[in-house]
């Protein structure tokens, strides 16, 4: 075993860890009076996280995250903060997949998503997949704070490596708090440095994995029935729809690739959860 001897800090010269960029995009959705249309008083893109308002349906406001440059690269510190205030309806999508790439500088990138949903508000967070390119190292967090009557639809998809390449290192933690209590806390760790990830207990050769979470306090006061998705045998991937220990339904799926993963999640949404994504 070799132990790396940490270099002594040189005050004033090497304090900045990397030359990566820092960017935080912010969105705030506000209902115009009771039952009124949702406005976006805050819609601030930053760096590679450009935001576009797109046409919404009914009272809902829709925002699309447009990647303005390649990111996150090693060393980058990216964040998105979205707030749906009381009674607001906000739907967020992305124009394209996010690709984690290795940077010129060693060191990992971070990408932190913070979502806050107030009472009576509904947030749909439906980005495109996160692709972990070979050699990349990304640590992602998604932290959701829900008020007691808040509603949420959240999709998260991870693709391990672009076509034909090995995956980078990808750690991702999803924490959902509701009414002061943690409803869901899940950390995934795939790729170099994550022991046991590519085994029959975790992914077993699948290169795409994802979750679809629906929190609906009234609808899921009674737990949703468990459903198995896909068939292990025919290479379509597999998944399960199950109730959490709270008023929420979670779909967990693994698949050979992003396309078949999306198919599983869409199928569960349409056939079993009766929601369109």
């Amino acid at each position: 075993m070799t132990l790396a001897v940490p270099a002594p800090a040189r005050p004033g010269t090497a304090a900045l860890p990397t030359a990566g960029l820092r960017a935080t995009a912010r969105i705030t959705a506000r209902a115009d009076g009771v039952g009124g249309a949702t406005r976006l008083p805050v819609l601030d893109g930053d760096g590679p996280l450009a935001l576009r308002r797109v046409r919404g349906y009914g009272h809902q406001a829709r925002v699309c995250v447009v990647g303005a440059m390649s990111a996150p690269l090693g060393g980058d510190r990216l964040a998105i903060e979205a707030v749906a205030e009381e009674g607001a309806a906000l739907h967020i999508t992305a124009a394209a997949a996010t690709v984690a790439l290795p940077g010129r500088n060693a060191g990992h990138a971070t990408y932190d998503v913070r979502l806050t949903v107030a009472d009576g508000a509904r947030l749909e967070w439906l980005p495109e997949p996160l692709i972990s390119a070979a050699g990349s190292d990304l640590r992602m967090t998604t932290t959701v704070e829900l008020a007691p009557t808040a509603r949420l639809v959240l999709r998260e998809e991870q693709v391990l490596g672009r076509t034909g390449e090995p995956t980078g290192a990808l750690r991702s933690r999803l924490t959902v708090r509701r009414a002061g209590r943690t409803l869901l806390d899940q950390e995934t760790a795939y790729g170099p440095g994550a022991p046991g990830w590519d085994t029959a207990a975790v992914l077993d050769g699948h290169r795409a994995t994802g979750q679809l979470l629906v929190v609906e306090p009234e609808r899921y006061a009674e737990p949703v029935g468990v459903r198995l998705l896909g068939e292990a045998a025919d290479g379509a991937g597999q998944g399960v729809l199950a109730p959490l220990a709270g008023p929420a339904a979670l779909v967990t799926a693994v698949a050979p690739d992003a396309l078949r993963l999306r198919h599983l999640l869409d199928e569960a949404a349409r056939s079993h959860l009766q929601i369109g994504l």
């Binding site: 806390d185 760790a189 967990t252 693994v254």
Partner: peptide, 12 residues
């Protein structure tokens, strides 16, 4: 909070 998707799916 390490998760194992296949353990979850196959348990059900």
């Amino acid at each position: 909070a390490a998760s194992a998707p296949l353990l979850d799916i196959t348990a059900e």
